[in-house]
């Protein structure tokens, strides 16, 4: 199962990005292979439709869940249509690695 974690940078030490549509990077974590890879969010600076397009990106990547700080109304609608679970993490300032460690503990 693939999980997307929004990230401010492109490595595991990067800080978690609390924005979804306008997040800097997506960390795609596969809990079966325990592999990660980072994809830059090309929609982070668009005028409108960031939430819609990043949700589409999440669906294309085959994610089953997304971990972010918040989801805007357009992103929510789209992610619900794609049946992608939204997980809101309120605690800011953690590294992506720390979040992955938590997923593995559960």
């Amino acid at each position: 199962m693939k999980t997307i974690i929004t990230s401010k940078g492109n490595d595991l030490q990067s800080v978690f990005d609390p924005k979804f549509g306008r997040a800097g990077w997506f960390c795609v974590y596969d809990n079966e292979t325990r592999s990660t890879h980072f994809i830059e969010n090309s929609f982070k600076n668009v005028n409108g439709g960031a939430g819609t397009k990043t949700s589409e990106m999440a669906a294309e990547l085959g994610a089953a869940q997304v971990i972010s700080g918040d989801f805007g109304p357009k992103a929510r609608t789209m992610l619900e249509k794609f049946k992608i679970q939204m997980i809101i993490l309120e605690e800011e300032g953690q590294s992506v690695q720390k979040i992955i460690d938590k997923i593995n503990k559960d």
Binding site: G49, T52, A59, E60, K74, K81, F82
Partner: peptide, 20 residues
């Protein structure tokens, strides 16, 4: 230009957001 169309091939998803 307005990011109003979303297409996801593997889900056979094609939709227009009329607000965008």
């Amino acid at each position: 230009e307005f990011n109003a169309i979303s297409i996801v091939k593997n889900l056979k998803f094609a939709e227009v957001n009329k607000d965008l």
